[in-house]
Each structure stands twice: as C-alpha cells, then as structure tokens.
C-alpha cells in the first residue's frame, strides 16, 4: 500500500500520485491514436482520390464537361479518332442499376419489414430476422456467380437479348440490397411508439389502414433512409454487377442491352492501364465520382434523419 502521509493535502492533491496519472495519460493516448488514425484515413482517402481524380482534368487536359456528358469512351488504341473520355454511359449505367434495383428492393424490403413488425412479429422475428442476417453475409462474388450461372441464361432464354444486361444487373443488385433495406426499415417501424398503433386500432381502423395511414407516414423518413442506404450500397457494388451486366462502353437503349457502370469499368481496366497514364487518370476521375456520390448519399441520409420524429 502507498506510504501513509500525514496530511490530506499531501495525499490528495494531484501532484501526489504521478504514477497513476501517467498510466491514465498513456492509456488515453493509445486510444487517441486509434481515433486519429480514423480521421487520418478518411482525410487522406479524400485528398488522394481528389488529387488523383482531378489530374485527368488538370494535367491531361480532359474537358470536365465532355467527360461527364460524352458518350464515347475510347482509349484511342485502335486508331480511329484518337482517345476520347466520355463517361456518360458509365454514369448512366450506375444510376440506372441503382434506381432500378431500389425500385424492386424498396417494396419488398419495406413489405418484409411490415410483415415482421406488424403482421407476424413472433415468428417473423424468429425466421425472417436470421434470413435477413444471412443474406447480408453472402459475399458479393457469390451473388455475381449465381447471377452468371442462373440469371443470365434465364434472361437469355426466356426474356431475350444476350442475357448479360441491365436487367440482370438490376435483379442481382436488388437481391443484394434487400437485406439492408429490410433491416433498417424494420428498426424504424419497431421504434415507432406503440401508442400510434393502439390509437389507430381504437378508432376502428383495420390493420392495413393503420399501416398505410398511420405507420408508414410516421416512419417515412426512416423508410427513405433505408432505401437510400440500399442505393448507396448498390451504387458502390463492383464485382457482382460486373459479372452479369455485359460491360459494354455504350449507352444501353433497353433493359435487355448490355451496359457498364463506374465500378465495372474501373474493375476491368485498372489493372491493365499504366499508372499515371491518361487512361489510368481517367479511371481515377471515375473513382472520384464514386467518392462524391457516397458523400451525397451521406448528406441525404443526414437530411432524412433530421426529419425523423421518432427514434
């Protein structure tokens, strides 16, 4: 035990127990380093991607407007009109698969969430919950693989086209984001105060009336958050989409056409282009678009969560 001092001022003032204070400071600095590393990683990702992504405009002189609106992506290796970097087909492809997959996943996901919270809470929780959790855990290459071996031939034989298409990409992505949408929508619906339901039922409303007149409006910002988070995941997904979408560089004219997205062109060409070359820098510009989009998704989610009434 520490040496007994005679007066309290010797025992209790801060200068009295250096060793413990030092240990405290050391512990605090260890965890502070982790926190600083998180900040450092985020900032350096933003800075590096920002500078790399702007190089094609600043150093290689690609026109930013043409980059965003041009429809021809050609490295210029096969002769022709020389290199041209028009990223619109990929930007369009990314937005198209994102919105289309959300169109399927949103009703299914929210419907599943309503089933779990309103219609069969007990076995919904017992069965659907683990199902959702397992779906989240399935790696994206497995989704891509199944898309490739099941979905693509199915589309080719029964719907039309080559099979590698916007349609296949959208279906694969919608299955991938379904668990995200469902689990967040479920959390939102569960966090609604029980009184809302009771007062609606007390007024003689049926369950369906309660759901669409009371619960869905009350939970709307949270449900939208669920959809936006799903879209953010779809927008950034690379390999699963790349395996089924066909990877062309042209704008698709129908759902059955092949297409490309920002992530698929990066996945395919990053390894083949020389570091620092124009075509490589153009790919970094595409990555910068991905980064900016994930910031935008965060802003949308922030806006939605500020509108939430119940947490």
């Amino acid at each position: 035990m520490a040496k007994e001092f005679s007066t309290a001022s010797e025992r209790l003032l801060k200068k009295s127990n250096r060793a413990a204070l030092k240990m405290e400071m050391r512990g605090k600095s260890i965890v502070l380093i982790s926190a600083i590393l998180i900040i450092a990683a985020t900032i350096s990702i933003t800075i590096f991607l920002g500078t790399k992504g702007l190089q094609s405009f600043l150093v290689n002189g690609i026109n930013a407007v043409e980059f965003l609106t041009g429809t021809v992506w050609d490295m210029g290796k096969d002769g022709g009109n020389g290199p041209s970097y028009g990223a619109l087909p990929f930007i369009f492809g990314s937005f198209a698969v994102t919105f289309l997959s959300a169109l399927i996943a949103a009703p299914l996901g929210i419907g599943g969430a309503i089933f779990m919270t309103e219609i069969a809470p007990s076995w919904g929780r017992k069965i659907l919950q683990p199902v959702i959790e397992l779906l989240v855990g399935i790696p994206s290459v497995v989704y891509g693989f199944i898309g490739l071996t099941v979905l693509v031939p199915f589309v080719r034989n029964h719907v039309g086209g080559q099979g590698f298409s916007l349609l296949s990409g959208m279906i694969v992505l919608s299955v991938m984001i379904l668990p995200t949408v469902t689990s967040i929508a479920t959390d939102t619906l569960r966090s609604l105060p029980g009184g809302l339901r009771e007062s609606s039922y007390a007024l003689g409303a049926t369950r369906w009336q309660t759901i669409y007149r009371v619960l869905v409006p009350a939970a709307l910002p949270g449900l939208l958050t669920a959809i936006v988070l799903g879209m953010a995941r779809a927008f950034g997904e690379a390999l699963a989409v790349q395996m089924v979408i066909g990877n062309t560089k042209e704008l698709p004219s129908s759902l059955l056409d092949s297409a490309g997205t920002l992530t698929t062109i990066i996945t395919l060409n990053m390894g083949h282009t020389t570091y620092g070359s124009v075509e490589n820098n153009a790919l970094w510009s595409l990555a910068l678009i991905l980064l900016i989009m994930s910031f935008i998704f965060i802003l949308i989610i922030r806006y939605l969560s500020s509108r939430r009434q119940y947490r």
Binding site: I38, A41, T42, S44, I45, T46, F48, L49, A232, F235, G236, E237, A238, T263, I266, T267, M270, W284, A287, L290, L291, S294, F295, F297, I298
Partner: peptide, 13 residues
Amino acid sequence: VLASLPSIVIGMF
C-alpha cells in the same frame, strides 16, 4: 464516410 465508401474505392486507395 469510411463505412459508406465503395470497397472498390478502398481497393484503389
């Protein structure tokens, strides 16, 4: 931000 970055972007970084 880190959580919402597409993994391909993390790979590029």
